[in-house]
Amino acid sequence: MTKKITLKINGTEHTMEVEPRMLLVHAIRENASLTGTHIGCDTSSCGACTILIDGKSAKSCTILAVQADGKEIATVEGLATAEGLHPIQEGFHLNHALHCGFCTPGMMMRAIELLDKNPNPTEEEIRWGIAGNLCRCTGYNNIVSAIQWTSAKMQGKELPSTEPKFV
């Protein structure tokens, strides 16, 4: 038996008929054709599928599409506007915080909620804050730098250097 649901993704309503067993990540990728949200592990571990539901970061491989009926969903596709990149995208770009880019959409969506709750996090708070997102390429240091840079940018503070750091 299917159920009719409406997902408001990045401000646009998507109405669809889904089986209750359809995972939210499939509804986003296949029904709404927004493939920026990735599937890494499919076992709730890697965070590649992270999106925001009503502002809260969520692993969309572990949520049913029917549970998100009527909710506001934000995915990576909604970050950039006509004016340019979102500060978190700019931060990742300038700080070399991605190599293959597979983890990046989930990592950025997670970082957005982190900075929303804690606009000025310490390095330790950032590392605990992204504990649910795995990156197989970067070694995380540049991701931490990117989030620190974005924090400064969003608060209008002096921007840290984006020169590559060798640690």
């Binding site: 965070g47 992270t50 809260k56 970061s57 969520a58 692993k59 572990t62 504990a131 649910g132």
Partner: peptide, 11 residues
């Protein structure tokens, strides 16, 4: 703090 990760703890 030791249960899973922030996304899991949101749910």
């Amino acid at each position: 703090k030791l249960i899973a990760d922030p996304q899991v703890r949101n749910f």
